[in-house]
Write a protein that binds this DNA or RNA. Structure first.
Lengths: 240, 240
DNA sequence: GCAAATTTGTCCGTATGTATC
DNA sequence: AGATACATACGGACAAATTTG
């Protein structure tokens, strides 16, 4: 088997991507079996499997045990996993990654404030208010309801923009923050009451179409989050 | 061999990540060989290899043929590959992904305008000007010099922020756009002279510390880029 | 509920290509 | 050049999961 210079696994990976593009497949559509790909692309099943695994990591394909291989959802899962690991590894780096991450989260919601205020309709406000109600009630109960409502709140905030990429990136960064923050090393007492208050302030400013108040509410909402990361950074540099 | 519920490959992947975290390794540090990992984690070489390939796709590890396996650079390569494929696949979707992408690129530079203006120093202006000079000269020659200078320009613009994450995301989106735009299907006559002019306007506004002019210059710079994508979207919906 | 068929998951052994010393 | 260490690739076999009859 003569192989020029590039890796066979890479050629197989490219071949699978080309197959999806040429056949105009979309998320959920079925791909040939590993055996068929092996025959078509002229590589052993082992090489095909390794190629499929790299595409699976990027959510370009999705493998279901005993069922088959399908086109993936093309989500931000790879970004989440990579950034999460980077955040966990950044202990030596004083968690600077997390600090930068909070900046980006605030940038998305602040930088899009004009368009958010312009597109938010009455229905959105009722949905947002309902979510904050959920946060308030489930706060004393199990903690999972609170964080899920918080996630949905930030998703709904940028949803009316119609820019799915921003919505997905925003949620991806939320996911990374939520996973990494328990590992920051300091007691990050999630003041749920404060979060509820800040969320309500964001809704009120948006409903009043007050751009300045909205931007201020966003900043105030991220202030305690930023403070949590900064405390962890200070503790690390002092203790380490 | 009994295994609970999760896949062995996943356990191996988690084991490798844990090894990196526990030993506080950083990019470039060596990992155990595949054989050692196989013995340590209790899995065959095949399973280890597949796990390593998924981590390689996320740039968490980096494999050098005949040399060994090392901790990766934790770059945005996975985001670039995933978004690029999504952009190429979005023909049916009227290239909406690309339209959203341009929004995000502009958001980064517009949303950070205040901090950019506050942190840009004299040295940065000379570097930026030199890059635009390069673009002007290499414009008539080979096209590679132009695009590289353009990439460096946008990198330098957000570099003084000190937020590496924004810098890397900004470049990642630049990479995706540059790869996908030739496949948009319409003649996207890259008006290099116009790009040079717009870049100079951005520098001038920054030098004058004029926030409004800076924001306007950014918008005007992305206007033709946005127009290119919109034309492609219109052509696709009309032709298909 | 059982059994067969299909498909992916895992393992082993071997040979080859690549980089280092 | 030779030797060594390592990743790459192959082929076959069996296990596990899912669907279907």
């Amino acid at each position: 088997m003569r192989r020029g210079r590039s890796l066979l696994r890479q050629e197989v990976s490219d071949g699978i991507k080309r197959y999806i593009l040429d056949n105009k497949l979309g998320p959920g559509d079925a791909l040939p079996t590993e055996s068929e790909l092996s025959a078509t692309l002229g590589a052993s099943r082992s090489s095909v499997r390794e190629a499929v695994k790299t595409l699976d990591a990027l959510d370009i394909v999705e493998v279901r045990h005993g069922h088959g291989t399908y086109v993936g959802r093309l989500s931000m899962s790879a970004l989440v996993e990579g950034l999460t690991f980077r955040g966990l590894l950044s202990r030596e780096d004083d968690f600077k990654v997390m600090s930068d991450l909070v900046d980006v989260r605030e940038l998305f919601e602040r930088g899009m404030s004009d368009r958010i205020l312009a597109t938010l309709a009455d229905e959105h406000f009722t949905d947002l208010n309902r979510l904050v109600d959920d946060m308030e009630q489930s706060g004393s109960g199990d903690g999972t309801g609170f964080v899920e409502a918080d996630r949905a709140f930030h998703a709904l905030l940028v949803a009316p923009l119609g820019n799915e990429l921003i919505g997905q990136l925003s949620l991806a960064f939320w996911d990374v923050y939520t996973v990494v923050v328990p590992h920051l090393g300091v007691i990050t007492s999630e003041d749920e009451a404060e979060t509820v208050t800040n969320h309500r302030r964001i809704i009120d400013a948006a409903r009043a179409r007050d751009a300045d108040a909205f931007a201020r509410a966003i900043t105030e909402h991220y202030a305690p989050i930023r403070h949590r990361v900064d405390r962890a950074r200070a503790a690390t540099s002092a203790g380490g």
